[in-house]
């Protein structure tokens, strides 16, 4: 299978702290890949490097063959990477529908004047955006809540809305930062089904950070384990999770 993500020798320091160093990672097209490690291992830093929030000191990162190091966040999104956040970042003052429509921003265009004067291009684009956004909301069973303010949704649905918004940008690679954080076992189970469904339905490549080992072992095909910014182990999920070094890193001696 073709490679979607190719990371070579990625590294960044904050002052004297080597947050991530010499990270190599390859993710195949359509793969469900997990990035795990104890708190402070540098997982979210990796996400921030991949999305252009931070710029790495060393290394290269290719998405579908295209080098993305040095690009800005919005260009990286346009190149095909969308993400969710560990602490949910929705547009709380906007409706659920408008959150997803904001995600469609770069896919349906009309001029500012067309928007102000309600020209046909405005009506067409808005209608298509409504349809597309409702389609996405249906996938996450949020279509009935389209008119609600995003801030008023319960936690689990906010997480789903964040994924829907990310998918609206039509990415090749979806980064999920602790999607199950704060969910109960039932919600986690449902989330696992949703993630699998997204992968199959949208033909998506997914890289996720997660602490919930049930979720990780349940859906991830391969894993990378980080510890203190260093690569600790890499490979198929079952193999990695039974690696003595990984167990030591998580549970101590």
């Amino acid at each position: 299978m073709a490679l979607m993500v190719e990371i070579k020798n990625l590294g960044i320091s904050f002052g004297g702290l080597r947050a991530v160093s010499e990270l190599d990672m390859e993710i195949k097209k359509g793969e469900l890949y997990g990035l795990i490690g104890p708190n402070g291992a540098g997982k979210t830093t990796v996400f921030n490097l991949l999305t252009g929030v931070y710029h790495p000191d060393t290394g290269s990162f290719k998405l579908d063959g295209e080098e993305l190091i040095g690009k800005k966040t919005i260009d990286i999104n346009k190149a095909g990477i969308a993400r969710t956040f560990q602490n949910i970042r929705l547009f709380k003052g906007l409706s659920v529908l408008d959150n997803v429509k904001a995600g469609l921003h770069n896919h349906y265009r009309y001029s500012t004047a067309a928007g102000i004067f309600r020209l046909p291009s405005y009506r067409n684009a808005e209608r298509q955006m409504d349809e597309k956004a409702m389609e996405l909301l249906k996938v996450f069973e949020l279509d009935g809540l389209a008119d609600h303010l995003a801030a008023n949704l319960p936690y689990g649905q906010q997480r789903k809305l964040e994924i829907a918004r990310a998918l609206a940008t039509d990415p090749k690679l979806l980064l999920l930062d602790e999607p199950a954080a704060g969910m109960n076992p039932n919600e986690t189970q449902a989330l696992m089904d949703t993630i699998r469904f997204v992968r199959d339905e949208f033909d998506m490549t997914i890289l996720l950070i997660e602490h919930d080992m049930k979720l990780v072992s349940g859906i991830c095909e391969r894993l990378t384990v980080l510890n203190f910014g260093q690569l600790l182990a890499q490979g198929p999920t079952a193999e990695v999770l039974s690696n003595p070094q990984v167990i030591k890193a998580y549970l101590g001696e």
């Binding site: 966040t73 906007l94 959150n99 429509k101 770069n106 928007g115 102000i116 955006m129 918004r165 609206a168």
Partner: peptide, 27 residues
């Protein structure tokens, strides 16, 4: 009319969460 358009949505999304707005490709 500006508020209720693509541009207005972009402006309000930046107000509500700048980092998220950037992550979905809003300038």
């Amino acid at each position: 009319n500006l508020i209720d358009s693509r541009d207005g949505r972009a402006i309000m999304s930046i107000r509500d969460n700048r980092i998220a707005a950037e992550s979905i490709g809003i300038n």
